[in-house]
Nucleic acid binder design. Structure first.
Length: 942
RNA sequence: GCGCUUGUGGUGGAAUUGGUAGACACGCCAGACUUAGGAUCUGGUGCCGAGAGGCGUGUAAGUUCGAGUCUUAUCAGGCGUACCA
């Protein structure tokens, strides 16, 4: 009896030995080159892992193991993003403390992960919800509070420097409250009165990336705009650095592009517009507009303010007051969502007129919701001829439209393109205002030139300034929730004050109820022991709050999800350090993440916040690299493949896919776990639900064939495939191979169990290479044959190249080919067969360890040396070449491997096969492609 | 609307980067061994055609001796984003 591939026994054995031997423990070692591999850590949800989750982990584990075999000191940690809404909502429903459910979920995750055989160093595990971890989240927040962004140096600086500057300038106020308010305008973490996305259903504010199409990402509840005092992070200060950094990192172009759009840099000009409160009135003030099309100043026919702008009140004339108020009321009644979907033109005349500084024209000022308060200055100059939104507005309110580009047809729509020659600017020479003897004239210039010329003019005559605007907004950093990091902040006479650094962490207090209080305070309002005793430096009962005694209320907000996930990669470097986020030694050694693997859905969330957070810590000298993630690979999503059975209406009879059109049927989702290769397991189906216990079937060829569809993997579609079942039936090595064999890592693809047998068969074949009929090792010390050496070295070359390129599916194909070849060659050479376990170790570590041990290898296969291929085994003795003539004739012939292109042409043209084609022809030219083909182009003799 | 991205057999997907399209796997067909097979092994399998042969990488044109690969146009799907002036 040949020795069986008993994956259960092998995998259990090695899971045990890896733990006993601490195979995956890593320590800093300055004598070895480091390599840092990281996965985006998971949020441990109650549903456990499905087959989609491990995809990225397997991909990065393969790379980590490969790098280790190449001699690198590889850091490959794992942890949990443990704060989150689902645990809190579950707590609200059941009263169970979120920590309890979160930890239970973590245990379940860990159990599932362990079965797959990852090379994680679990000693470095982090959980964002434990005090020893969020200590450093709070610490970073305090550092941000005590820093400002120096525009000149383009980096964070201690706030003391700024205070010093104010003192020197004599602008430092004496009053403490005034000092606090002043500094709030500069601190990187600051309290700001801002428009926030308020989600009433969730009872909390949300960041911009947590809102999609006007509803919350979590739960899909409506979101409205509300002005609130919130903690914010001055992410926008880093806009330019966040943009520039993208050019230095190896990320996919699409993610970089998404981030560039999100940052939204636009170069333009701010121009001062004086206004009057009646057509012939005197100047009553001025406002500033922002434009990227300064060249269109001559086409301005009206101005527009955002309804939320503070200017609205100032420019509204008594006549128009009622109309404006009514319009503002209407705007306020609309939700974010309505405003987003419905783009009908609305607006109201304010009664005031803006004076175009270039033409001197007076144009009406409107108020309209199509202008956004949050971008630029909240005020625009409208050029209906060359902006589609202004055009629609002008048509609706019957305002003039002045074309400014030669040949542009604006009868039906505006001409928005930035191409063409400018005209009508000005229409007549006197139609422009003279400044210091100069008048602006753009006629005849290209649009690009005109923009530059206008900017110059505006700047030279002090009509405004050149300005770069960013779409990126400051991140709102507080949440009205329980299950998050508490702020280490108390309010001393209304002034936000930091709890001393030495007293951190401030632990999340216990509460009875996780809902907001009856008075509308956030859930932390339910905490009893939640006041700061300044003298004794400790947290006390809030009943004791007494300003005279130095006992103050503590902040009730908590931090958002991205707080804990923004710098976790630094913590993995030194997870047990209670003196610092990360020691200087560890940070200097590990530097930054060499390979980061995770989903592309974090492009505008985590991946921006993390880069921001790291840049801040870099400015502090804590992080050693400006960019946290050198290379990013976005693994695709695994979709579900649902199966259907077809029930004949009003019966309990099910008809197979091929015959269903003959009946009137209802498709019903059936659990994919009782379907194999689209064939339904009838007994399992009957047992699946009592309803089907007495089901009848109409079969084809004796089988019940199910229909299928690609859908999201979800419980309700019965298409969730759990990795545990695959591991149970085929083993972890097969699961790992199959997930990679499914297709390129970056690509989204449906989970389809149909092909898994191929990978399982491959492992069995690999296993079979090593054992004879009696179950003994079938190895010889004979010289390996040339064929088997060629097979081996071809494989080494292919696999090495493919791993580097993350092309795991093709390297697995190469393994399959190689094992088939070696099996056919009846290869039993120790030299060859000893190398295979090392090569397969990154993909299928369990079988690799077992074979390595059986062959008498030293220690773990993880510490073996990755083999080098040698060209000499790959050289062909002769090369097959085709000769191709003009037209379609062609034949194959053999050339010596070392033939030069000239010799190849010589041989080809003088070959007997060629003679009949060359008869009566002139050779126009000949081309030889090395090792491939000789082309001879001919034409009939003249 | 804008930005990015992908279109190759019945299916998942290969293609040394401009050089024999369809590797490898699933599925299917035939055969072998079996009491049996959803086990194992062998062979076949892009399409049309009995055959010789012809046609084939979403569609149409172009560059080239040669195009799945490059260029242009066009169609279709996916992702992101959205009144950003």
């Amino acid at each position: 009896m040949a020795k069986e591939y008993n994956f259960r026994e092998i995998e259990q054995k090695w899971h045990r030995l890896w733990v006993e031997r601490q195979t995956y423990k890593v320590t800093e070692d300055e004598h070895r080159e480091k390599f840092y591999v990281l996965n985006m850590f998971p949020y441990p949800s109650g549903a456990g892992l499905h087959v989609g989750h491990p995809l990225g982990y397997i991909a990065s584990d393969i790379y980590a193991r490969y790098k280790r075999l190449q001699g690198f000191n590889v850091l490959n940690p794992m942890g949990y993003d443990a704060y989150g809404l689902p645990a809190e909502q579950y707590a609200i429903k059941t009263g169970q403390h979120p920590e309890k459910t979160t930890f239970a979920n973590i245990d379940r995750y860990r159990e599932q992960l362990d079965k797959i055989g990852f090379s994680f160093d679990w000693d470095r595990e982090v959980r964002t919800c434990t005090p020893d971890y969020y200590h450093w989240t709070q610490w970073a927040f305090q550092k941000m509070f005590n820093s400002y962004f120096d525009e000149e140096l383009q980096k964070a600086q201690p706030i003391e420097k700024l205070i010093e500057k104010f003192k020197q300038e004599g602008t430092w106020p004496a009053d403490e409250k005034a000092q606090s308010d002043l500094l709030m305008n500069y601190r990187i973490a600051f309290l700001g009165e801002t428009m926030v996305n308020w989600c009433p259903k969730l009872g909390t504010v949300l960041a911009n990336d947590e809102v999609v199409e006007g509803v919350s990402v979590r739960g899909g509840y409506p979101v409205e705009q509300k002005k609130m005092r919130q903690w914010c992070l001055r992410v926008s200060a880093y806009s330019q650095r966040l943009l520039d950094g993208l050019d230095t990192i190896d990320w996919s172009e699409s993610i970089k592009e998404t981030q560039r759009n999100w940052i939204g840099r636009s170069e333009g000009a701010e121009i001062e517009i004086p206004y009057t409160l009646s057509k012939d009135g005197d100047e009553a003030g001025s406002f500033t507009i922002f434009t990227t099309r300064a060249d269109t100043m001559f086409g301005v026919t009206f101005f527009v303010l955002a309804p939320e702008s503070e200017l609205v009140d100032k420019v509204t004339t008594p006549d128009q007051r009622a109309a404006v108020d009514e319009y503002l009321k209407y705007v306020k009644s609309r939700t974010e969502r309505e405003r987003m979907i419905d783009h009908t033109v609305t607006g109201v005349f304010s009664g005031a007129y803006g004076i175009n500084p270039i033409t001197g024209d007076k144009c009406p000022i409107y108020i309209a919701e199509y202008v956004l308060a949050g971008y630029g200055t909240g005020a625009i100059m409208a050029v209906p001829a060359h902006d589609s939104r202004d055009y629609a507005f002008a048509k609706h309110f019957d305002l003039p439209i002045i074309p400014l580009v030669e040949g542009a047809d604006i009868s039906e729509e505006s001409y928005d393109a930035k191409e063409g020659i400018v005209c009508n600017s000005p229409i007549t020479p006197d139609k422009s205002v003279e400044y210091d003897g100069e008048r602006l004239c753009l006629n005849g210039l290209t649009i690009k030139e005109a923009i530059a010329e206008t900017k110059r003019f505006v700047k030279a005559h002090n009509l405004g300034r050149v300005k770069v605007n960013y779409r990126l907004r400051d991140a709102i950093f507080s949440r009205q929730r329980y299950w998050g990091e508490p702020f280490p902040v108390y309010y001393k006479k209304g002034i936000p004050t930091m709890i001393p650094e030495e007293c951190l962490p401030i632990e999340l207090p216990q509460v009875e109820k996780f809902l907001p209080t009856e008075t509308g305070e956030p859930p932390l309002g339910n905490a009893q022991i939640w006041a700061w005793d300044e003298k004794n430096r400790k947290i006390v009962d809030k009943k004791l709050i007494d300003e005279a005694a130095g006992i103050y209320p503590i902040e009730l907000y908590t931090m958002p999800g991205f707080a804990g996930s923004s710098a976790y990669y630094l913590r993995y470097m030194d997870p047990h350090n209670d003196q610092a986020l990360v020691s200087d030694r560890a940070a200097s050694y590990w530097q930054n993440v060499d390979l980061y693997v995770g989903g592309s859905e974090h492009a505008t969330g985590h991946l921006i916040y993390s880069r921001f957070w790291n840049k801040f810590l870099f400015d502090l000298g804590v992080s050693k690299k400006e960019e946290p993630f050198k290379k990013l690979v976005n693994q695709g999503m695994i979709q579900g493949r649902s199966n259907f059975v077809y029930r004949i209406k009003e019966t309990n009879t099910f008809v197979s896919l091929g015959l269903k059109d003959k009946y009137d049927v209802t498709p019903i989702h059936v659990d994919v776990n009782i379907v194999k290769n689209d064939i339904l397991d009838l007994e399992a189906f009957k047992a699946w639900s009592p309803e089907y216990a007495t089901a009848d079937f109409v079969l084809e060829d004796g089988k019940y064939i199910c229909g299928w569809a690609i859908e999201k993997m979800s419980k309700s579609m019965y298409n969730v495939v759990n990795p545990d079942m695959i591991v149970e039936n085929y083993g972890a090595d097969t699961l790992r191979l199959y997930e990679m064999f499914l297709g390129p890592v970056e690509q989204s693809k449906p989970w389809d169990t149909n092909g898994i047998d191929g990978c399982f068969r491959f492992l069995k074949k690999l296993w079979a290479l090593y054992w004879d009929k009696d179950g003994n090792l079938a190895l010889t010390d004979d010289e390996p044959s040339a064929d088997s050496l060629k097979t081996l070295h071809k494989l080494i070359k292919k696999v090495t190249g493919d791993i580097e390129a993350f092309s795991y599916n093709t390297s697995i194909s190469a393994f399959m080919v190689a094992v088939n070849e070696l099996s056919q060659q009846k290869c039993s050479s120790r030299t060859v067969l000893q190398t295979l376990p090392v090569l397969i170790a990154p993909f299928a570590p369990h079988i690799a360890e077992e074979l390595w041990e059986a062959l008498g290898g030293e220690g773990s296969v993880c510490d073996a040396k990755w083999p080098q291929y040698e060209e000499k085994y790959l050289v062909e003795t002769s090369v097959k070449l085709g000769v191709q003539f003009n037209g379609k004739v062609r034949f194959d012939m053999l050339f010596p491997a070392d033939a030069t292109p000239e010799q190849m042409i010589e041989i080809a043209t003088s070959a007997p096969e060629a003679a009949k084609h060359l008869e009566g022809m002139d050779i126009v030219k000949t081309i030889a492609i090395p090792k491939r083909i000789v082309n001879i182009v001919v034409k009939p003799k003249a």
